[in-house]
Simulated assay, not measured.
Amino acid sequence: MQKRTIPGTSLALTTLGFGGAPIGNLYREVSDADAIGAVQAAWEHGIRYFDTAPHYGLGLSERRIGEALRGAPRGDYVLSTKVGRLLRPNPSPGGRDTEGFDVDDGLVRVRDYSRDGVLRSIEESLARLGTDRIDIVYIHDPDDYWAEALDGAVPALSQLRDEGVIGAYGAGMNQSEMLHRFVTATDVDVVMLAGRYTLLEQGAREDLLPACAERGVGVVNVGVFNSGLLSKDRPAPGATYNYAPAPAELLERANLLADICERHGTSLPAAALAFSFREPLVTSVVVGMRTAAQAERNTALGAQEVPQSLWDELEERGLIDTVPGPAATESPSREGAAR
């Protein structure tokens, strides 16, 4: 599998990465065997970038990824996790998690973007993962915590990177506006962008991607199926967008995209995945994988050739943006960044 390097670092990510939320029992329970089998199948098919977070299943995803990768040469893969949610004992346990994961509620998430919170979070993630280092650390969903992240997490992670404790750091969010603020106001190496640069919508082209090109910041693109709307050859009844029932106008647009894909001999999910790879700034596309079969399907989709004629028609019809040429992304600079 091809690799792309995060600008300014030595970290080369496979263009397709493993997203660990599903094996944290996102929406429904996954057996240990299926979860570990998903990671191992991804490895067998060439994936060497694995992303997780404490949030995913109250630490379950981290533990499972750690177990599945135990014994794999540590220098052969890139591992990322996130900070911003500490896991602490639930004072009133006895039910199930209320944030989308089918796990016991023995722990609760405590938002903490302070320096001490970041250091504790990394230490606890290392223990759950059973590893001696984390390559990339993302500040996770700081939408309502900009000041705390800027004053606490950013300088802490910048120092850890400069000391060689971590390889890179950035922020991961479901919006492009605040990621743009991180890129222009801090010295992040990479951003994880969820759902805002896809075959269905390209809002990040307006603000975030130009800033990343100017500052030499990598982009890890996630949510490329828009939480399910683009994941099948034809949008399924009840398909979701942003984790809620898709509005009628977006269902209509997705069906139009599916029609055009069929005419060009490809499928909607193959085109949705390939779309990101047209953008030179995108270092990797991370896709959630729940089972070995899903890992095999996603790697097969990632290997499919999508004809240029499809992109030509979509551009002509104004359904996708036009990717700038190399001149627009060459010679990035971080002049003025606090690095």
Rank of each mutant, 00 (worst) to 15 (best):
Q294I: 02
Y169A: 03
Y56P: 00
A303M: 11
S333P: 12
E262T: 15
R278G: 06
G216I: 04
E313I: 15
R181Y: 06
L193H: 00
H45P: 01
N221Y: 08
T98H: 11
A68S: 08
R334D: 03
V137M: 10
Y56W: 06
P7V: 07
L160Y: 12
Q2F: 09
A236F: 07
H45M: 10
L107R: 05
E252N: 08
E296V: 07
T131H: 03
P73W: 15
G203H: 13
A258P: 00
G336D: 10
T266K: 10
P210G: 09
F225R: 01
R109Y: 11
S31H: 09
P22Y: 04
A338I: 07
D143F: 15
E313L: 13
D141L: 09
A328D: 12
P237N: 03
G336Y: 13
A300M: 08
R215W: 05
V83L: 07
H180V: 04
T131V: 10
F225H: 03
L199I: 08
L11W: 07
A72H: 13
D102M: 07
R253N: 06
D189Q: 00
A72W: 13
T329F: 12
N242V: 05
D162R: 14
G325Q: 12
I166A: 07
V220M: 08
G164V: 05
F225P: 01
R205P: 06
V287E: 03
R85K: 11
S114G: 14
D112N: 15
D116I: 09
H264P: 08
Q308S: 14
L301P: 00
P237C: 04
L251V: 11
H140R: 05
G95K: 05
R64V: 00
G20C: 12
I23F: 03
A149R: 02
L209R: 00
R85D: 04
S114Y: 09
S227L: 03
R297S: 14
D189N: 00
D151F: 12
H45L: 14
S125Q: 04
A38C: 13
R120P: 02
F277P: 01
D132I: 02
D102F: 08
R85G: 02
R64K: 03
R128A: 02
Y77D: 04
